[in-house]
Amino acid sequence: MELITINITNLLFLTVILLYLVLLGLILTYIYYDAELRGLNGWLITGLTFFSGTTLGALAWLLLRPKMKPQPVPVRSQSN
């Protein structure tokens, strides 16, 4: 049985793959929470983004996402 040797090429390849997966997770997480914040189904938007190609889907979401509705700010009356 041959031992697996890790040379610099394999290490760089695995590092690039790991960084890609982390970045993918961060982008999809942002899109999920942004869609939920805007009142849409986060899982649906995230799935559409993932399956349309994450880069193209993320750009499409950033360009076509609905505007946020302003939230009323509660004001407390001052009573002495």
Results as ranks from 00 to 15, higher is better:
29 T>Y: 08
19 L>S: 14
62 L>K: 12
53 G>P: 04
63 L>Q: 11
37 L>H: 12
18 L>F: 14
51 F>N: 06
14 L>W: 07
73 V>H: 08
10 N>E: 13
66 P>A: 05
33 Y>N: 11
56 L>Q: 07
33 Y>G: 02
72 P>G: 06
53 G>H: 06
51 F>M: 12
50 F>C: 10
35 A>S: 08
1 M>G: 09
42 G>V: 02
63 L>W: 05
22 V>P: 01
24 L>T: 14
50 F>D: 00
48 L>T: 00
51 F>Y: 08
5 T>P: 01
45 I>H: 01
65 R>P: 01
24 L>N: 09
67 K>L: 13
28 L>S: 01
2 E>D: 12
2 E>A: 11
37 L>C: 07
57 G>M: 03
28 L>T: 05
20 Y>T: 14
68 M>I: 11
8 I>Y: 11
16 V>K: 13
52 S>G: 15
37 L>F: 13
27 I>R: 04
4 I>T: 05
68 M>Y: 03
67 K>M: 05
2 E>F: 10
35 A>V: 08
58 A>E: 02
19 L>G: 15
54 T>P: 08
20 Y>A: 13
40 L>V: 01
62 L>F: 15
62 L>C: 06
46 T>P: 10
18 L>I: 13
58 A>Y: 07
71 Q>E: 11
37 L>M: 12
12 L>I: 01
71 Q>S: 12
62 L>Y: 15
5 T>Y: 13
28 L>Q: 00
61 W>I: 04
27 I>H: 05
44 L>H: 01
20 Y>H: 03
80 N>P: 13
52 S>Y: 08
6 I>S: 06
1 M>D: 03
57 G>S: 10
34 D>H: 01
26 L>E: 05
61 W>D: 04
67 K>R: 10
62 L>I: 10
76 R>K: 14
51 F>D: 01
52 S>T: 15
42 G>R: 04
40 L>F: 05
67 K>W: 04
23 L>T: 07
52 S>K: 02
15 T>V: 10
45 I>M: 11
51 F>L: 14
37 L>I: 05
22 V>K: 04
37 L>R: 12
72 P>L: 11
71 Q>W: 13
69 K>Q: 11
25 G>D: 04
44 L>Q: 06
46 T>G: 02
42 G>N: 10
60 A>H: 04
53 G>E: 01
48 L>H: 00
67 K>N: 05
32 Y>V: 00
17 I>H: 04
5 T>E: 07
70 P>W: 02
3 L>Y: 09
59 L>S: 02
7 N>A: 02
14 L>E: 07
31 I>L: 10
18 L>Q: 12
58 A>I: 03
63 L>N: 03
